[in-house]
């Protein structure tokens, strides 16, 4: 049985909600049951925001998760909140530009990605979240690139379609950065 439970967290406006939707959409294209739910409280209006994603080959119960096996943290408060909740064996992506801590848990697979730096190299700070998603996809290994890329296209509003190539580049660069780290780790 496949049961993927993710929390993606960061500041409002970093694109956290969108990358959650992209991965859930990719899950749907892979014929899984998928659900996404935002934290929709006042904190989502500018403060720390997060979304939950559940992907499974069986009907999904709660879309909320309390022990995620996949987490992306885009800022320090999110690291403090969600790293301790993670299920053993989970994948954690840390945006080192805004979250300097290292995880002390030895039961997680952790990748540290300077997502903002990579995004700026590609050309736009907004690409940081998709970079993190690339790293996450590489570390988690559940999704086909083609499906995630379709998800990116789906999530981009019509007025930003000119950003599609840059987004896909950011996704690929994030993947590469994670793969490099994972290789080192297994050596």
């Amino acid at each position: 049985m496949l049961l993927e439970e993710y929390i993606f967290a960061g500041f409002g406006g970093q694109g956290i909600m969108t990358i959650g939707q992209i991965i859930a959409y990719a899950g749907m294209l892979q014929d899984f049951y998928t659900a996404w739910i935002p934290s929709y409280g006042p904190e989502s209006r500018g403060g720390t925001a997060n979304c939950n994603v559940v992907i499974s080959d069986e009907i999904i119960g709660s879309p909320h998760t309390h022990h995620p096996n996949g987490v992306i943290v885009m800022n320090a408060p999110s690291f403090d909140k969600f790293e301790p909740m993670m299920a053993s064996g989970g994948v954690l992506v840390v945006n080192t530009n805004l979250s300097p801590k290292r995880s002390e848990r030895d039961d997680l697979s952790v990748v540290y990605i300077p997502t903002a730096d990579i995004a700026m190299e590609i050309g736009h700070p907004v690409l940081a979240s998709v970079t993190a998603l690339g790293a996450f996809a590489a570390a988690r290994g559940v999704f086909d690139d083609a499906h995630v890329e379709k998800g990116i296209d789906w999530a981009l509003p019509a007025r930003h379609k000119d950003m599609l190539e840059m987004n896909i580049k950011a996704y690929q660069e994030g993947k590469k950065a994670a793969e490099a780290q994972l290789k080192t780790a297994t050596k």
């Binding site: 859930a24 049951y33 998928t34 659900a35 996404w36 929709y40 999904i60 709660s62 879309p63 909320h64």
Partner: peptide, 10 residues
Amino acid sequence: DGTIGQMMEP
């Protein structure tokens, strides 16, 4: 309820 209203699914 808020969960069903806010969540996304196919």
